[in-house]
C-alpha cells in the first residue's frame, strides 16, 4: 500500500514565498466531516481547511496525499509524506511510534450508535481497524468486528452485521441525524471519552516541522479562528477550546 496519491490542493502562495518548504500531508479522505472526497472528486473537510490555514501561517507549501487508514502510520515513518491529519487521536500506543503536534480539537467524544437505544454494547461491536475505538472495544470484552473504513462500520450496523458501532461522535452524528430514526445513540453511551485530542502526526525525528505546526496551531487557538472552524464543520454543539 504505497504512496498513492491524489493531489488535491497546492496552497496558493504569494510570489515572494517561492522558497517555502514543501510539506506533504497524508489523510484518509473517507471520514466525513473530518476529511472526505467531495462530489467534485476533491479532498474536503474540516482538516483540509484547517491544514491549509496552518500551512499558510507556518509559511509552508503543502500538498495533500490520500492514503488508506490502515497503512497511514507505516507510510509516515517510511517518509512517503511528512505529516498526518486524519482525525487521529493522541494515544500512548501511537506515541511510541510517532510524535504529535499540539492537539487541534479538544479531547473528542466517542459514542456507540445502534438500531435500538438498548443495544448490547458487549455483543458484536463494529469499529474501524487500528483506531483507538477498536482498541477500546477489544478491551471491554465485546466481540470486535473490524472494517477498513468508517463508512463500512455504519453499514454493518444498518444491515445487522454488528449490534452497535463505536466511533468518534462527530463522525457518527450526521449519520444518526439523517437516518430518520433508524440509527440512534445507545443509552448512556452517547458520550465516551477515549482520546486525548486530535493532532497532527509527525515523524519523531522531524522536530523542526513539529515546532512550526505547534506555533501555527497556537496562533489559531489564540485568535479564535480554530473555534470558528470547529463550529463551522461540527455544528454549534461541538466542543471548542
Amino acid at each position: 500500500m504505497k504512496k498513492i496519491l491524489l493531489a488535491v490542493a497546492a496552497l496558493a502562495l504569494t510570489a515572494g514565498m517561492g522558497m517555502a518548504e514543501t510539506v506533504r500531508i497524508g489523510t484518509e479522505g473517507a471520514y466525513p466531516p473530518y476529511n472526505f472526497v467531495n462530489d467534485k472528486g476533491q479532498l474536503d473537510g474540516f482538516e483540509i481547511e484547517l491544514g491549509n490555514e496552518l500551512c499558510k501561517r507556518a509559511a509552508l507549501e503543502c500538498t495533500w496525499v490520500k492514503n488508506d487508514w490502515d497503512s497511514i502510520i507505516p507510510n509516515l515513518v517510511s517518509s512517503n509524506y511528512d505529516a498526518i491529519m486524519a482525525g487521529m487521536n493522541i494515544s500512548d500506543e501511537r506515541k511510541k511510534a510517532i510524535a504529535f503536534s499540539e492537539e487541534y480539537t479538544p479531547p473528542p467524544l466517542s459514542a456507540y450508535a445502534a438500531l435500538t437505544p438498548d443495544a448490547d454494547i458487549k455483543g458484536a461491536v463494529a469499529a474501524q481497524t487500528s483506531t483507538i475505538q477498536a482498541g477500546y472495544v477489544a478491551e471491554t470484552g465485546a466481540s470486535l468486528v473490524e472494517f477498513p473504513t468508517g463508512e463500512e462500520t455504519i453499514a454493518a450496523v444498518r444491515n445487522g452485521e454488528a449490534e452497535a458501532v463505536f466511533a468518534d461522535r462527530d463522525f457518527l452524528a450526521p449519520y444518526v441525524q439523517e437516518s430518520n430514526g433508524q440509527l440512534v445513540w445507545v443509552k448512556g453511551q452517547e458520550k465516551v471519552v477515549v482520546g486525548e485530542g486530535i493532532a497532527i502526526g509527525l515523524r519523531k525525528s522531524d522536530t523542526e516541522l513539529k515546532a512550526k505546526f505547534d506555533k501555527a496551531i497556537e496562533s489559531m487557538k489564540a485568535d479564535g479562528s480554530l473555534n470558528k472552524l470547529i463550529t463551522k464543520w461540527y455544528g454549534p454543539e461541538a466542543l471548542v477550546f
Binding site: D70, A124, S143, L144, V145, E146, A156, E161
Partner: peptide, 14 residues
C-alpha cells in the same frame, strides 16, 4: 469482516 480479531494468516501478518 474479521470477527473478534480472529483472522487468517494475512490478517495477523498485516
Amino acid at each position: 469482516p474479521a470477527l473478534r480479531q480472529q483472522g487468517d494468516a494475512l490478517y495477523y501478518a498485516s
